[in-house]
């Protein structure tokens, strides 16, 4: 799934012209013809959404209440799967690993992206070329990113450890070492997404009225003061968007983990979705896998709702 398949937090209300109001004015009798037109326009999207999103969503809830290996008939077990999952330390471990990933990844891409956006928002020569280079990893697939970083961070003859060796530093085992495996994944992921965050924050910075910043300058506010007291509050909608998206994507992290470590070594990078995948296709516990994916969905939903609720406290929409 692409990075931006998530709804923006606030749906802007478009100012309605008289023509808009006339077009959308509810009319009592529109007749069967109008209904058919509506159906014709909605059907192409409604069919796939119902059959491949909403239907499976409900089915996942039902499957999560059964014991099923995808082959033999499913057996009804009620809430047993959920009870088993919550009582299993492995479940808490996969959520902990996922949180570890987010805790490393989010500050890295946010502050890295912010620094770049601030730099590129000045009168810099070759700005669009630089922006293009920083954005390049965004269009690369997660699998390629994972493979390339496995090679860069190869413990025996990767370029990173070879470079460290010339400085007399004995590089770590990276993705082969349980302690370094998650940092390796975080590093690769941050490399891929840095440009994405940068472009969003840059767009936010460019939308800020320069007169506001100039006014603060006239009042004698230094660079840091202007950043903290003027720019950051005005940038808060973009920051909010980045945080919401990053958290949603962070909880769903899978591709790069699958291709870099497969959850290893020794389960050190086993994240939630990797566990869902393994439960389904390796251990034949489709019921438990569905329960775990529902738990993940509920966590994502709760975190997103909390952020949307909490945004009033710190997000300023001009």
């Amino acid at each position: 799934m692409s990075v931006i398949t998530t709804p923006p937090a606030a749906i802007p209300i478009v100012a309605e012209s008289p023509a808009t109001r006339r077009a959308l004015r509810p009319r009592r009798r529109r007749g069967i013809r109008h209904t058919l037109v509506v159906v014709a326009f909605l059907l192409p999207s409604a069919l796939p959404l119902v059959f491949f999103v909403l239907g499976p969503m409900v089915a996942a809830a039902v499957i999560s209440l059964t014991e099923w290996n995808l082959l033999a008939p499913a057996e009804w077990v009620g809430l047993d799967n959920y009870a088993n999952l919550l009582g299993d330390p492995a479940t808490w471990a996969v959520f902990a690993h996922t949180l570890y990933y987010i805790a490393g990844y989010l500050p890295l891409v946010y502050f890295g992206g912010l620094a770049l956006a601030l730099a590129l928002n000045t009168a810099l020569k070759g700005r669009s070329l630089l922006r293009g280079v920083y954005f390049l990893p965004v269009v690369t697939s997660w699998i390629v990113v994972a493979i390339v970083w496995r090679w860069l961070l190869n413990p025996s003859n990767g370029i990173v450890n070879a470079t460290l060796a010339t400085f007399g530093i004995d590089g770590p085992g990276w993705w082969t070492d349980p302690a370094w495996a998650m940092p390796s994944i975080i590093l690769a992921s941050a490399w891929k997404d840095l440009g994405f965050v940068m472009v969003i924050l840059l767009a936010g910075l460019q939308a800020i009225d320069p007169e506001l910043v100039d006014a603060a300058k006239v009042d004698g506010a230094g660079w840091w003061r202007r950043l903290v007291s003027v720019v950051m509050p005005l940038l808060s909608p973009s920051t909010f968007f980045v945080v919401v998206i990053s958290l949603i994507n962070g909880f769903q992290v899978f591709d790069q983990v699958y291709a870099m470590t497969g959850g290893g070594p020794g389960g050190a990078t086993q994240v939630v979705v990797q566990q869902v995948y393994d439960l389904t296709f390796r251990y034949g516990s489709a019921g438990e896998a569905s329960a775990l994916s529902w738990l993940l969905f509920l966590v994502i939903l709760a975190v997103t709702v909390m952020q949307v609720r909490g945004q009033r406290k710190w997000v300023n929409y001009a």
Binding site: F52, V53, A59, Q252, V273, T280, A286, S293
Partner: peptide, 21 residues
């Protein structure tokens, strides 16, 4: 609203039923 809500459903949640379907 229902259309927008589908954006929040991670593909991972749908893997098992989609596969079965």
């Amino acid at each position: 609203g229902v259309y927008l809500a589908t954006m929040m459903i991670p593909l991972q949640v749908l893997i098992v039923p989609l596969f079965a379907e």
